[in-house]
């Protein structure tokens, strides 16, 4: 099912066009929103929330029209903003419960639910402390709790691991991963940290210059054309390389004793060719895996293309 379906969306701020003929489809699950600064991610999220009226085009979020159903969309969405956004003078439980009341929850339900989500986000012990006294990681998790208090179907998380140390990142990414896989909550994560996106997301949408650059699963994005394999040898073997080249394969040397082998054969045939050639040449194979590039390499290629 399409969670977000945007068609030919154009958003202008007076003379500046922030999104130009932007179309994308985001499916259920966890999706990463990638793009350099000024790419149009801000405007995209603002448009989804109904803050910005599209100049042209439009779309739907959870089947609701972004141009006319802003309030209903926000009822079904939870936003975790990038900036600190606590309400001065409130404890964590008071703040999260208040967010629930703003979403329409009765006060008694909101306070009960606030305890639950704060516990889920790992703030059980600190929930009676004033949010202003929290560390950065705790503030981030409080923002996550306020976003999910009313049980939204879609969470928009903006730079959720910003400014966090490795432990804090893990504490933040674990619930995001958990909630977006098997809990019925869909998540869109906007982040510049590609390892974080790779850790929690299944798909990505890459935006640049107000236009969609690419979208799809991370697996597809990292996929290399030509069905290459990475072969890790025990020690260098020139004859192995020569024999493979003779049989029509392209061999590219990687780090240390690793090689990238590209054949134009079927996968099973390729594996058979590599292993038989190694056997004939006396090359000892330590590892054989289908080659893929890093998400960073894929992202840079998309951005630079």
């Amino acid at each position: 099912m399409k969670l977000i379906d945007i068609k030919n969306l154009t958003v202008r701020y007076r003379t500046f066009t922030a999104l130009r003929d932007f179309s994308c489809e985001i499916e259920e699950g966890c999706t990463g929103l990638l793009g350099p600064n000024g790419a149009g991610k801000t405007t995209f999220l603002k448009t989804l929330l109904g803050f910005v009226t599209p100049t042209e085009g439009g779309g739907t979020v959870l089947g609701l029209n972004i141009a006319t159903d802003g309030r209903m969309i926000r009822q079904s969405i939870g936003l975790m903003p990038e900036q600190e956004c606590h309400i001065p003078g409130l404890t964590a439980v008071g703040y999260v419960a208040y967010a629930g009341e703003l979403a329409g929850m009765p006060a008694d339900q909101a306070i009960r639910r606030a305890h639950e989500v704060l516990e889920y986000c790992g703030l059980g012990e600190a929930r009676y402390r004033n949010v202003e006294t929290f560390s950065t990681g705790m503030k981030q998790r409080t923002k996550l709790a306020q976003a999910m208090i009313h049980g939204p179907k879609l969470l928009l998380l903006d730079e959720p691991t910003n400014g966090l140390d490795p432990t804090g990142r893990e504490d933040m990414l674990s619930p995001i991963r958990d909630i977006s896989h098997g809990k019925g909550v869909n998540v869109v994560v906007s982040s510049h940290l590609l390892p974080d996106i790779e850790r929690v997301c299944d798909r990505v949408v890459v935006v640049m210059g107000g236009q969609l650059r690419t979208q799809g699963s991370i697996k597809d994005l990292k996929h290399l054309s030509g069905r290459p394999y990475d072969v890790d040898l025990r020690e260098p073997n020139e004859q192995f390389i020569a024999n493979l080249t003779q049989q029509g394969a392209t061999v590219e040397a990687l780090k240390y004793t690793s090689l990238r082998v590209i054949t134009n054969r079927e996968p099973s045939e390729s594996v058979k060719l590599i292993l038989e050639t190694a056997k004939n040449c006396g090359a000892r194979v330590r590892g054989l895996t289908p080659a893929e590039r890093s998400l960073e390499a894929a992202f840079m290629e998309v951005i630079n293309s």
Binding site: R74, G78, H86, A99, L102, A103, G104
Partner: peptide
């Protein structure tokens, strides 16, 4: 930045 909390809710 509390306006974000208010206006992102319904």
């Amino acid at each position: 930045n509390a306006l974000l909390v208010y206006l992102s809710k319904p």
